[in-house]
């Protein structure tokens, strides 16, 4: 458990203990000092604890371990270890082109205004389906909408390997098409191999540690 979470839990328990004292002896609020104490303990501290808790939970919801804690995502987690440089998620994860501890979130967030909030709501939708609906088989999971180049360009735009890449510059129309999202990075013949769950059993895996 991260130290920050431990500290928040300790603050939460400390606040609960203080509230318990006030519940047991409410007459302490008769004095002016007691009223100030009651405000701090019954209003300020719970709001502070709630805000810190939400922040901690939101932060944890962005970790790779969190995403892979659902059984449905196991195969996707395994695909990050496929030993094939053409497998885009695996190559990004293994070479730390994305932070390994936030691999899923780095590519599957929405780099737009309110994008973080939007993907968190999508995440809540996933949780709802997982517990109250019928989760699809891992190989049948589809994105809500086609993967936008914006998510790739968040890192690659301006990079020499992207801007001056031989294939990208072979046709002058290619780069503008990629940047305007009219030509997908994952088009056939380009970076098309992503989370190849169907062929996981035949794949060779990298044995590196996360």
């Amino acid at each position: 458990m991260p130290h920050a979470t431990t500290l928040i839990v300790l603050l939460v328990l400390f606040s609960a203990a203080l509230i318990a004292v006030l519940v047991a002896r409410p007459n302490v609020t008769e004095t002016r000092g007691g009223k100030i104490l009651a405000f701090l303990v019954l209003c300020f501290l719970p709001i502070l604890c709630g805000a810190m808790g939400v922040s901690s939970e939101m932060n944890r919801a962005e970790t790779t371990a969190f995403c892979l804690s659902c059984h449905t995502m196991e195969a996707y987690g395994k695909s990050l270890y496929i030993d094939d440089p053409n497998h885009i998620p695996a190559a990004h994860f293994q070479n730390h082109r994305v932070p390994a501890d936030r691999a899923c979130y780095s590519c599957h967030t929405d780099y737009a205004m309110f994008g973080t909030l939007k993907v968190k709501l999508d995440g809540l939708h996933h949780v709802f389906i997982y517990y109250f609906g019928t989760p699809p088989a891992p190989e049948n999971i589809k994105l809500y909408k086609p993967f936008s180049n914006r998510e790739c360009l968040h890192c690659h735009l301006g990079a020499r390997s992207f801007e001056e890449g031989a294939v990208h510059t072979a046709d002058p129309a290619t780069l503008p098409a990629i940047k305007s999202n009219t030509l997908s990075c994952m088009s056939s013949g380009c970076h098309e191999v992503v989370h190849d769950i169907a062929h996981l059993k035949d794949a060779k895996f990298w044995k590196g540690s996360q």
Binding site: T5, S56, E57, A61, F66, S69, G123, V127
Partner: peptide
Amino acid sequence: CLLWARPI
């Protein structure tokens, strides 16, 4: 909930 690190 903070100690129980699960999506639910």
